[in-house]
């Protein structure tokens, strides 16, 4: 790994956003391979995730890391050759959305981001997602894990209805469902019929690694 590559990792992990963006520009001007830069970002995000898991980093660091990744991707993407797009997601498909009636998205976005940087193929279908849309998206995308997000207490019933509809549509077998959003606990997990609940993004990553049999 070159000095600049090492430096870029340090800057991203060290939350030095303007410096990391500037260095990316310099590296690209000097002819660095855009795919290599994306690989570096992925390595850096792994470290950020580990620090979050270890209680050293918190939500603001994840948000800033996500923002850095977005800005770097914007610089890199126009330079990628057709078909290029960074490392292939290998671990499996996860569909995620905020349930009907609820407009909250920051928690869902963080979970999407953390699953993505951990190698899962994530489809985020947005907020206030009606039950029928969940079913259609599941049929199209065929995920093995579905994440239902919600912050309001009305989400309890919307989650329960979504889980029931998945069952009725014959899609529940061989599928794991996780719920999250800060207002859930085991009582609500049982109530909705989900397989697990999480209070932060790393819980979601842990569930998915466990359910997909991903080795650490």
């Amino acid at each position: 790994m070159s000095d600049n590559q090492k430096k870029l990792i340090e800057m991203i992990v060290g939350m030095q956003s303007p410096e990391a963006i500037e260095l990316t520009k310099v590296m690209l001007e000097e002819g660095a391979d855009p795919n290599t830069i994306l690989d570096i970002c992925r390595k850096a995000m792994d470290s950020v995730g580990q620090k979050f898991e270890a209680g050293e980093y918190f939500v603001p660091e994840l948000i800033l890391a996500g923002d850095m990744l977005e800005r770097i991707s914007e610089l890199v993407k126009p330079l990628l050759k057709e078909g290029g797009g960074g490392q292939k997601k290998t671990h499996g498909k996860v569909l995620i959305g905020t349930v009907a009636g609820d407009l909250h998205d920051i928690g869902k976005n963080i979970v999407t981001f953390m699953l993505d940087v951990n190698g899962f193929e994530v489809k985020d279908i947005g907020i206030d997602v009606p039950v029928a849309t969940f079913i259609k998206e599941i049929q199209d995308f065929q995920p093995a894990v579905v994440g239902l997000s919600g912050f309001l207490t009305l989400a309890y019933d919307a989650m329960k209805e979504t889980v029931e509809a998945i069952k009725t549509a014959g899609l529940r077998d061989n599928m794991k469902i996780m719920i999250g959003g800060g207002q859930v606990d085991q009582v609500i997990c049982d109530y909705t019929g989900a397989d697990g609940f999480g209070l932060n993004a790393m819980h979601a990553v842990k569930f998915c690694k466990e359910w997909f049999g991903v080795k650490e």
Binding site: Q183, V187, I188, Y191
Partner: peptide, 9 residues
């Protein structure tokens, strides 16, 4: 008193 229990308990 937990909101989850108020709603589902």
């Amino acid at each position: 008193v937990p909101g989850t229990v108020m709603s589902a308990g």
